[in-house]
């Protein structure tokens, strides 16, 4: 209503959408377990359905990112470096994108994989979910502190939440290496194209945790200054 002549001195906090984005990413990551199960069972319909769900979440995350960007025009004073925040938003979005890429790759063609390979893939997925959840914990904690109390000391303590992300990411790297080697033994069973395809899925899966660990690193840079 038109009765106030008090200018809007305090802008909307860009640190709120950042936390929403992380929650959506976790929802996306949790669907990876279901889609892998459906893939292992050769259930093409479910793979497609879950991919659609993931795409919807990815789109939602995109909108949230857009909102965060709109909240940081150059006329706003922020408690952190603007460039760092923008860089974080970019890396944050890569996680959601990579999860969608995994699902899309699975949609292309289903291969019949031996049980041990399926199990190894499931381990990687479980660890990836761990990484994304650890990442969300760090974003929620640090984002929450930036949105409300700004206590440098508390923020610095919260940085302690980032190294576990990096440790789990490293574990996934090792698992990915082992699994890739095993995949080449499947040439007779699924053909060279099959090996290539599953390799790409595994590679893409590993990129999810890569992105999460990079986002965690950006978060640390942002609040360490």
């Amino acid at each position: 209503m038109r009765y106030a002549r008090f200018p809007r001195a305090i802008a909307k906090s860009p640190f709120i959408p950042l936390q929403t984005h992380a929650s959506i990413t976790v929802k996306e990551a949790l669907l990876l377990r279901e889609i892998l199960k459906a893939y292992g069972e050769g259930d093409e319909g479910s793979v497609r359905r879950i991919t659609e769900q993931i795409s919807k979440l990815e789109y939602e995350a995109d909108k949230v990112k857009q909102e965060a960007r709109e909240r940081i025009p150059s006329s706003i004073i922020l408690p952190v470096d603007r460039g760092d925040l923008q860089e974080f938003l970019r890396t944050q979005d890569v996680i959601a994108d990579k999860i969608q890429d995994v699902a899309r790759l699975m949609c292309f063609r289903l291969y019949d994989l031996p049980k041990d390979v399926r199990e190894q893939m499931l381990t990687i997925v479980d660890r990836t979910i761990d990484v994304v959840e650890e990442y969300k914990k760090a974003v929620t904690k640090i984002g929450g502190l930036l949105a409300t109390s700004f206590r440098r000391k508390e923020v610095k303590e919260a940085i302690g939440l980032i190294p576990p992300i990096e440790r789990t990411e490293h574990e996934i790297d090792i698992l990915e290496g082992q699994l890739s080697k095993r995949l080449f033994q499947l040439e007779a069973r699924i053909g060279p194209l099959g090996v290539y395809h599953v390799l790409r899925i595994v590679k893409c899966l590993a990129e999810v945790s890569d992105a999460a660990s990079r986002a965690g690193d950006r978060l640390r840079t942002m609040v360490s200054k």
Binding site: A11, S13, P79, F150
Partner: peptide
């Protein structure tokens, strides 16, 4: 004067986002 004071609090790192357009 209030607007000036709010900007002052923002510059001291007390607010998530202060609008300088005002």
């Amino acid at each position: 004067t209030i607007v000036g004071a709010i900007i002052g609090v923002g510059l001291a790192g007390g607010l998530p986002a202060v609008n300088l357009n005002i």
